[in-house]
Amino acid sequence: MSSTEIAPDSTRRPFTGRRVRFGDVSLQAVAGTAAAAATFLVFLIAYKVVRGAQPAIGKYGLAFVTRVAWDPVKNVYGAGSFLFGTALTSLLALAIAAPLAIGIALFLTELAPRRLRAPVTALIETLAAIPSVVIGLWGILVLGPILRDHVEPALHSALGFIPLFGSPSSTGSSIFTAIVVLTIMILPIVASISRELFLGVPRDLKEGALALGTTRWEMVRGVMFPYARGGIAAALILGLGRAVGEAIAVTQVIGGGLGIQLNLFATGDTLASKIASSYQGAQSNIQIASLVYLGLILLVFSLIMNVSAQVIVRRVARRQGVGLNRGGLG
């Protein structure tokens, strides 16, 4: 079909000599420029963020990273509190989401009746498509009050001797609500990458194990997990990266609080949520620079996590000859 479009054209104006070279060279040049621009963009982002943070870097140095303070009156700023909040929320969200996501992936590849597989896969991926602001809206108006009235008091009375489960929050905005919201957001990401990894496990390996008399779970543990181990690690890192970088939904539900405390039902802040909630109202230049410094820490984290996940994915893909086309976040 396409060749008939070409034929009359090429008899009229034969592609020879200079015209051919000119066309080839210019398409390659234009496309190459686009690729160079995309690469340049990443470096420009890093440069601009470093430049924006420069005043704060110059004034506070590396001590900023661990200092627990955010005082616009005395102009003392530090990332310690938000680093703690980021680590607490994203690691706990990952700890809850990881087994659930792997369970979902196993369901979709091994257990689900054939008729259920495509629809449930589509539903899980739809969950990933819901914008964070909508999840946050739901988190603050629906989930928060439920957690405050029912879940937090129950956890406190049953497990109150553990410092994590302190006295329940008064508003529904808490680190705990943020953890639940983040869990919901990273669950479909980790699940759909794990599903693709499990689909890539060779059938003869799985059938060989079952033929040796293993139960299905023993086959999963003995064959599928070792086979997909690297990929699952990458999936978990990507999920963690998504949780660390999420700003809007966390800002909506975490309540904004300063300090390092283990009580999950208290308010807090993460690096990303602090930027989202205070950037607009920032008064002094040094406060803006400090917020950009938080962004720089966030950028460094996301770079480390993304590059390591991609390196793992590529190594696994080369070793097993399967294409993992679902790189990156979201």
Binding site: A35, A38, T39, L41, V42, L44, I45, K48, V49, R51, G52, L238, G241, V244, G245, E246, A247, I248, A272, I275, A276, Y279, L291, V292, G295, L298, L299, S302, L303, M305, N306, V307, Q310, R314, G327, G328, L329, G330
Partner: peptide, 26 residues
Amino acid sequence: RTAVSLTLDVLNGVPAIVIGIFVYGL
């Protein structure tokens, strides 16, 4: 190809809030 597609993955992984800071500064 490997290098540029890794860069694209990195760009994809930059948190949206950092993109906001970047464009604000730019």
